[in-house]
Design a protein around this nucleic acid. Sequence first.
DNA 1: AAAATAATGTTGACACCGGCAACATTATTT
DNA 2: AAATAATGTTGCCGGTGTCAACATTATTTT
Lengths: 206, 206
Amino acid sequence: MAKKQIKKSYHHGHLRDALINAALKLIEKKGVKGLTLREIAKHAKVSHSAPYRHFKDKADLLTAVAVEGFETLVKETHKRFETVSGDPLSRFRESGLAYIDFAIAHPSHFRVMFGLGENRQQTPPALKKASGESFRILLDSIMACQEKTYIKAGDPMELALCAWSIVHGFATLYIEGYIKKYDYEGNQRLKEMITDNLYLGLHIKP
Amino acid sequence: MAKKQIKKSYHHGHLRDALINAALKLIEKKGVKGLTLREIAKHAKVSHSAPYRHFKDKADLLTAVAVEGFETLVKETHKRFETVSGDPLSRFRESGLAYIDFAIAHPSHFRVMFGLGENRQQTPPALKKASGESFRILLDSIMACQEKTYIKAGDPMELALCAWSIVHGFATLYIEGYIKKYDYEGNQRLKEMITDNLYLGLHIKP
DNA sequence: AAAATAATGTTGACACCGGCAACATTATTT
DNA sequence: AAATAATGTTGCCGGTGTCAACATTATTTT
């Protein structure tokens, strides 16, 4: 509720969040490549050097944006769980579809979430945590499915990795333009086919 | 064979290729992000503006690098086909493993091959063609498998997309550091598990 | 063969970018 | 009230992509 302050003071008050939001807006509009620290600062109505009081450098800001992405992905996935039966298999399936839909809805944001690697020595802890929580959803639903023998036995970690791979691969190929021949309904079908093929691979009973 | 010329002339002779090679070397060493047009030119012993006689801009050069990547991927896949039985199922499997191994062996190059999308209006024709030839391998082996009823019936295009998705997703997640807990042998196992899970999804007979 | 033209490479400039240091202003602690 | 920390600004630096103007060489035309 400390949001509607009249901005008159020298200090901004919520600059860190404002910068992340500005970055998000600019990313959606102009993509990651054209994203500039100075333009972000300008949008937050602050000088070009101000961001350095809140972020070590540009990559650090982008890491925060990526974290934000994983967090909203988790939120949206949970929201979609409520629109579907409590059956663990339905949840498993829904988590994959939510992942793909998120990527398609926010391609640039999605790229930031995964396009930071770039010879990085190691993943920043905040990012590791956020992405881990997203992965956790997949892992949990797989284990729940295993308990009901919907999914074959085996290291759930590895099975989850397989599941993640297929939805991530599809999402990536889609937003990079390698899957285009199908209109929206066609893609809807494709998405389902992907999860179905995966299920066949992990299923016990058809 | 026109390669061993004494370089003394004002004109370079093979500058286009030289630039692509220089870019490849620099990409392997310093990653995509740190890649600079001026440094590429310097490595090719040419002024910072010379590349513009052969490429429209930096993105155009990177597109050429991406094309080169798909071409060598195709070559390496064919090479590996010779190390394996002529059975279409073995070839199908080998094409997936070759894809993953290529990405792991040349992560930066792989990123260039897929990291250009970035709100691109449409894929450049040369890139579309090169990537299409790579996809063609997958498509052909799937159709060959279908003829022998190794793989279930259905639009081979969609099945190939599923196969591509899973290996591409795994490769991407691996090089971005999201799959790290396993040493090399472990990953070998994982790679095989991925293709195996995929096969179970596409198989007719176990 | 000479001249005209095209292709290819160089130099120098421009605006912009990320990042840093030095300084200004405001919050917080002592 | 004074000292200190936090936060924001200004000005600068080297480096980058790109372009225009110019230089040199290759190719085509006459």
